[in-house]
Each structure stands twice: as structure tokens, then as C-alpha cells.
Design a protein around this nucleic acid. Sequence first.
DNA 1: CGTCTCAATGCACACGTTTGCATTCCTTGT
DNA 2: ACAAGGAATGCAAACGTGTGCATTGAGACG
Lengths: 342, 342
Amino acid sequence: MNTFSVGHPSIKDIARAAKVSHPTVSRALRHSPLVKLETAERIRRIASTMGYRPSAIARSLVTKKTNTIGVVVTTISDPFIGEVVSGIEEIADNHGYSVILANSNADPDREIKVVHSFHERRADGILITSSRVGALYLPLLRELKVPIVLINNQYPGEFIHSVTIDNVTASRDATRHLTQLGHKRIAYIGDQFGFQSDAERLAGYRRALEEAGLSLFPELIAAGDSRAEGGTRAMQQLLTLSTPPTALFCYNDMTALGALSCIRANGLKVPQDISVVGFDDLMIASYTNPPLTTIRQPKRRLGGAAMEMLLKLFSGVHSETHTKMPGELIVRESTAPPQKEA
Amino acid sequence: MNTFSVGHPSIKDIARAAKVSHPTVSRALRHSPLVKLETAERIRRIASTMGYRPSAIARSLVTKKTNTIGVVVTTISDPFIGEVVSGIEEIADNHGYSVILANSNADPDREIKVVHSFHERRADGILITSSRVGALYLPLLRELKVPIVLINNQYPGEFIHSVTIDNVTASRDATRHLTQLGHKRIAYIGDQFGFQSDAERLAGYRRALEEAGLSLFPELIAAGDSRAEGGTRAMQQLLTLSTPPTALFCYNDMTALGALSCIRANGLKVPQDISVVGFDDLMIASYTNPPLTTIRQPKRRLGGAAMEMLLKLFSGVHSETHTKMPGELIVRESTAPPQKEA
DNA sequence: CGTCTCAATGCACACGTTTGCATTCCTTGT
DNA sequence: ACAAGGAATGCAAACGTGTGCATTGAGACG
């Protein structure tokens, strides 16, 4: 009876103190017009002095809304993903949603564990930022009947929407920048082949070459891993060619970073010996030596737009299901015309 | 009655299908020894075919445990913080905890909003990764009566624990590396003054100078903002000195990155004209030109250890309240003996 | 003065679990 | 044969909210 509630004060505790019923307290706190202004204010005052905070879980149980969205990332330590998540969180917070975060490490087992976890927590929606969307767990996703928005990936399906960057146009712009500088042998270091964004960037690269009337040299296309290590490895391989490329377009900035360091280690100069362009425009791209020419992705906006799409889906609007945002070529100092042939 | 439950199947739906009471289902699913093995298996089979997933929120309501921890960061787009959070999430996931993430942007208003949000969601514990712990909202934190672990910050208090790196030893090592190379004029670019980690790193710097019998030149101590911009700005200022420093120790790698780019822009060479050492050992530190000598922080371990401390607190162990981890000097190519005086 | 209306509040139940206790039924020991 | 005990299960209450409906009371109107 007279237990001094050691836990959190509940709506009933306040009701007792205010000599009203607990539904009245509930209404008063939610500013319902049903309760007399005078008593409502008294109740709110009491609640405040008791340090009352409503229990989101109890509320969720009845409203069937958790105001929670699950975000799946391959790894949050990736700087690109960090920016995207930051954009997600900002919009989510503005609308009273909390972000629950989970790394998948691109491991299928963890992927399905993560989805189950989100399901059990009854997340209102799911956002997936992942270079690779495991076809393995996508069927699982759709049976949740929960709105899902993919970032930088597409997948057909009623519940699956997406926000992506226009990869092919952007990488065509990037490559064209190189062709317009006069380069003839332009290499591409991609991600592990088979992922959609890589395929699209490769397609843009091809198109730019075609448009410039250049032929495609298969030996100038190498695979990385979207990280610096892969860039270094692939670049090393390209440099062993009998006629190495004079320019290089990379799947992303991390790859370019690895390539730059490899080029330097081989005693070559950027951009004199070889021009390099990246993709993403990470914060560090302005601070490399030389500063990196790259495609700027609106990273935070990408996340924000995905969250906004989720909000629209919550309110029943199913208008556009796939949004595509433009990239922007940022020319810095890592690109220049090819050296005069000796 | 015969509503085809469009939502999630509940424990009662399964009970009906299995012709048992719902508590029996509950026990069966939790592998309680109280229920006969045979029926338990039957129930589990039915639950599985119905695609049942327990509601974590309903469970939380009664168990008073949410298996959720709130993580406050200044901004998740910071690469250092990304690594830390990654370490947190890994350990949390291993123990069945989910991470709910919130950016504070170092904005006091958002800080208290975030804490309220965590409180309402009844997070079991709170982790704070923030260069700055707003004294403003710390009183608020302690009244939650929830275990709190600070990362790279300390604050006295019964409910407040911490995991930090040994800043003063590490920065002493970094600075000593420079003194041992023969440098006499060593500058320090800090964070905005007033933050604890900055004060400690400055202290380590001072001690190393003392130990080397060098005098401290106040004009060689500048303030940054822990980002590249601040490093650039501060470096520019240092270079206008009549006798500029021959070596530089930076609060962190981002600051060093900014400084490097400023040095380069002024036509000077690293390490010939000036040696630079950073702090953190971000992934990019190995890819700068030249590769950066720095202090390695065990970033993921820092996050992991904080989470482990939280787990200990959950189980009632209150042994050590402040853990200090060592940093490690990583010597690369941005440091060298000072140039011979002309 | 009686009835109707509407504002203000309370009652009861629901959400989906967990858990202490009661109940049933079967086995075992004397 | 009967009590005792234990295994298996059901009942009821609880966690902290929200909400439809009933109830109360007072003012307005005829």
C-alpha cells in the first residue's frame, strides 16, 4: 500500500496525489481538452514536482507505435555511413523518433539476427545502409510488413523503397572530366564485383568512354573492396601493366586514398604522372595531398531523405517509391591533363 | 472473437491453437522445466509456423528491463566516435542489448532532450562519448538512477563511471618522441580550452618538456577545435611567429590533418621543415602524405570496455569505477630530427 | 420546478507478457 | 486402500498506459 515507490512514479501515483483517477491524469498530461484547465494545470504541476516521465514502453503497448526506427549498417565506423546515419538521426529526432542502430558487418547471420531484433522491438520502420543487401534476408524483411527504405540500393517490392544517388550519371561526369582533360587510358577500381552501386558506377564509366570515342581496355578495370587496402592492392596491380593508365577513377574515396598511397610509394606523382578521382567527397578528401577531385554525395541529405520517406509511409502516402539524388563533381588538384609523351 | 489477427500473433493466439493456456506457452518458449517436454516442443513448433516473435515491449513492461542502452555522441559522423560506437555495439549485441543512438551536437538543449528521451524509453544504462560533458545536464543524469559510463571523460559521482585513455602518459610519450629527436621548439595545438582531455594532453606535453629540460614557450600553444579547420587556423597562426616551431604535437589526428594541409600550403615540407604528431590513430593516419606519426587509441576497445563496465554494473558489481587504458606511440614518417641550422 | 444538455470525471478493459499461487491428476510408499 | 507428494497446468494479477462508455453534476431553458 504505502510503498514508497522506489522505481519511477507512475500515472497512478500522480492520480493518488492529485485525488483524481489515473485516466484524468493521462488526459491532463496529453493536454486533452476533456479535462478542466484548472485541474489539468494542477496535475501537471504535481507530475513535474514528482519528476514524472511517461513510460514509452507502456504507451507503445497500447498505441502499437514505438516511435523507433531500426537502422542497419555494415559498420558504423565507415565515415560515409557515419554521415548518412547522422542525417537520419537528425530528421528522426525532429519528429520524435529514436534510432536504434545495428552493425551487420555484412555477415548474413548477423543480418538476420538484426532484423529479428528490430522485429521483436516492434520498430515502426527500417532503414538499411549497406553496400550489399543480402538477398538472403530480404524475404525475411518483407514478411514483417514494416516500411523499409534502402539507401544507395534498390530492390523491387511493395514494402521496399529506396533513396539512392544517381550513380551512373555521377560516374559518367567523373570519367568525362578525365576524358576532357585528354586522358586516353583511364582505369577504374571498383568494389567487389556484383554489388549494385559498383555495377552502376562501372556503367557510367563505360558510357563516358564511349561518348569520348575511347575504347575500353579490360585490363584497366580492377576490383577493390571499397576500403583503402583494396585500392592499394588494385593500384599495385595496375602499375605493373606494360602501359599503365594515365588516369584513374575509383569506386569511392577510401579506394582512392589507398591508390594515392600506392602511387606515391612507387615514386610517381599525382596528378603529373597519373590523375585520380574518387567518389563520396568524404571530409578527408579536401585534406589529402593533393586534395582529391571527387564526386560529392549529399550524404546527410541521403539519410535525411530516407527518413523523410519513412515518415511519409507512416502517414499512408505511398507516392514515389524510389528517389534518386544527383551527385556533384568537385574538382580539386588530383587531376590534370596527361603529361606530354616524351 | 474470431478476428483474424492482422497484427503480430500473440502468445494467446498460440495458446488457442495449441489448446493450452497462455502462461504455458510463455513457459514453453522460455524453455522452462515446468512444462512437459513433449507439449513444449509441440508449442514451439506451432509458434514457429505462426511466425511468432515475442514482443520485447510487453516483456519489458513486466520485467522492468529493456535490454537497451542509450548512447550519446556529439556527432556520429566523427570517425573517432564511429569506431568507439562500433566497439560498443559489438559487445552490446553479444549480450542481447540494443543500442539506441542520439547525437547531441554538443548543444545543451539537445543534450537534455536526449537524456529525457532515454529516460522515457527506460534505457537500462547510458554511455556518453562526448568531448565535452555538459555540466548542465549531469545533475539530470544522476537523478535517473541509471548506470552511466563516460568515455574519455571523468566525472565524480556514485552512478557515474568512466573508461578513458591515459592522456597524460600518452601525450608525454608523443612529445618525448619529439624531444628525443632533438627538437627544442615544439608547439601544441589543442582543443577548445577547458575540456578535460585537452587539459590532460597539454599536461603531458608540459611534463615531457620539463623532463627534457626545455622551457615552455606560451606562444607555441594554440587552440583548435578538434577538427581539421581548427588545425589549419591554429597552424597558420603559428607560422607567422618570428621563429616558428620545428615540431608540432596535435590534440588529435583531425587537427594534425588540418595542420599538415596548412604547412603544405605555405610551401614547407613535413618532416624536413617541421615534424608533426597526432593523436587517435584514425584509419586515415596511415594514408596521409607523409603517413602520420601518432598515438594509437584502442578505439573499439574503449567502447567495448565501457559496455562491459555497464554489464558489470547491471549484475551488481561496483568494483572499479574508473578504467584507464594505455595509448601507443606509432612512429611513421611525419617526424624526423630538426634540420641543421643554416 | 422539471428536464435536457453538456462539461468533467471515473470505471473498466485492453495491450502482451511474466509469475506466484491454486488446482488437478497421477505416482509412490506404507 | 489411502495419504502424501510431485509433476503439469491453469487462474489471476501485475506492469503503465490509452480510450470507449457510463456516471455525475450543474447550468440552461421551457
